[in-house]
Simulated assay, not measured.
Amino acid sequence: MKKLFYILALLIGFCGSLQAQKAQLSKEEFRKVQEKFITEKANLTAKEAKQFFPLYFELQDKKTSLNKEAWHKIRKGKQENVSEEEYNEIVEDIVQTRIQIDQLDLDYVRKYKKFLTAKKIYEIQRAEMKFHRELLKPKKKK
Rank of each mutant, 00 (worst) to 15 (best):
F14P: 08
S17R: 06
S17K: 09
L18K: 07
Q19S: 01
Q21I: 11
Q21G: 10
A23V: 13
A23T: 02
Q24P: 08
Q24G: 08
L25A: 14
S26H: 05
S26K: 13
K27F: 07
E29V: 01
K32F: 09
Q34C: 02
Q34G: 00
E35H: 01
E35V: 06
E35F: 14
K36S: 12
K36H: 08
I38P: 01
T39G: 11
T39S: 15
T39P: 11
L44Q: 01
T45F: 01
A46Y: 03
F53Y: 13
F53Q: 06
F57A: 01
D61Y: 00
K63T: 05
T64M: 03
E69K: 05
A70M: 07
A70T: 09
W71D: 01
W71G: 01
W71A: 07
H72N: 10
K73S: 09
K73I: 10
I74E: 08
R75V: 11
R75Y: 15
K78Q: 12
K78I: 03
N81F: 01
V82W: 03
S83F: 08
E84P: 12
E89S: 14
E92I: 07
E92V: 06
E92M: 11
V95D: 00
Q96C: 00
I99R: 13
Q100G: 02
D102K: 10
L106S: 07
R110G: 02
Y112F: 15
Y112V: 06
F115Y: 12
T117F: 14
A118R: 07
K120R: 11
I121G: 06
I121H: 15
I121N: 11
E123S: 07
E123W: 06
I124A: 08
Q125Y: 14
Q125L: 11
R126E: 15
